[in-house]
Computed example of a mutant assay.
Amino acid sequence: MRIVTWNINSLRLRLPLLERMVTELSPDVICLQETKVPDELFPEAAPGALGYPFHFRRGMKGYNGVAILSRVPMRRDETAPDWCLKDDRRHIAAVLETPTGPVTLHDFYVPAGGDIPDPAANPKYAHKLAFVDEAADYFAANPPARSILVGDLNIAPLEHDVWSHKQLRDVVSHTEPEIERMTRWLGNGFTDAMRHFVPPAEKLYTWWSYRNRDWRASNRGRRLDHVWVTPDLVPALRGLHIHQEARDWTGPSDHVPVAIDLAL
């Protein structure tokens, strides 16, 4: 089974790119973030036309929004809380019916956090820290099993998850308070599936800023998109693919699709 996670940065704007991604990667399940479409305006016919008869979505006008599209039968899981009591459509979960048994899939879009790494001066950064704290606490209190967590978590935790650890250590997405919280969240029941395939000493990016005119030449990337699995699914991991080609598509997202393959 192949699962793709992708911050598409507007579903309706990039529907043709979604179709291209499906053609090139042929995922069984697609987890999208930053869909930027309220539920009543979601393009209902699109998933089925692309070969995904099952889909769930949680969206809002203008920003945020998550969706899961699946070829695999699934049911909605609504046991998680309203994170930070904001109802800002940053998480959706489903239970996939796989040949080896049910698997819970979480799709997250963590707040970006603004530009100032000071929670007293920047409410967006304070919200981000509170969100990650709450997520870590939730999974500590509700230990996951046979679960996969994917999404744009907006934190690059390791030294080689960013193009320059030294220059970015005080830049939001790579600050110590964020890293400490993400490390605690990951430790509450998950394994970093991407680093299962790519050693921590190797560079690994999924996002390149629109500000870089030649993103390949500068390669100033960050790993903001993640795939975590519970330890009982580690033996099922089969492969990882970062679809960097998507960053060169016409009108691209600044994130690229990440595909994980599992024997489920």
Rank of each mutant, 00 (worst) to 15 (best):
A130R: 15
A112Q: 07
A121V: 04
G114M: 00
P123E: 07
Y125W: 12
H106R: 01
G114T: 00
L105E: 07
P123Y: 08
G113V: 04
G113R: 02
Y125P: 13
P119N: 02
P111K: 13
D115G: 09
D107Q: 12
G101A: 03
A130V: 06
L105H: 07
N122S: 15
A130D: 15
N122H: 14
K128W: 11
V103F: 08
V110N: 08
L129W: 08
G113N: 03
Y109C: 08
K128T: 14
F108V: 03
P117H: 10
P99K: 02
D107R: 01
T100K: 07
T104G: 10
G113L: 04
G101K: 01
L105G: 07
H106A: 04
A130M: 11
N122V: 14
L105M: 05
A112P: 00
T100G: 03
K124W: 11
D118Y: 08
P102M: 11
H127S: 02
T104W: 05
L129D: 09
H127Y: 11
P119C: 09
V103N: 06
K124L: 11
A120R: 13
Y109V: 01
P99D: 10
N122E: 15
A120N: 03
P117W: 04
P117A: 10
N122G: 14
K128Q: 13
P111R: 09
D107N: 15
A112D: 04
P99C: 04
L129A: 12
A120L: 13
P117S: 10
K124D: 10
K128N: 13
K128R: 14
A130G: 14
G114H: 00
T100L: 04
G113P: 05
A126N: 11
A120W: 05
D107L: 11
D118E: 04
K128L: 12
T104D: 07
P102D: 15
D115A: 12
A120V: 12
L129R: 08
V110P: 00
P119D: 04
A112I: 01
P102S: 14
A112N: 14
A130S: 14
H127F: 10
G113Y: 00
T104Q: 15
A126L: 12
A130Y: 11
D107P: 05
A130L: 13
F108G: 00
P102E: 15
P111W: 13
N122A: 10
P123F: 05
G113I: 04
Y109A: 05
G113K: 02
Y109T: 00
G101R: 01
A126H: 08
I116C: 06
P102L: 13
P99S: 05
H106L: 06
D115Y: 05
L129C: 09
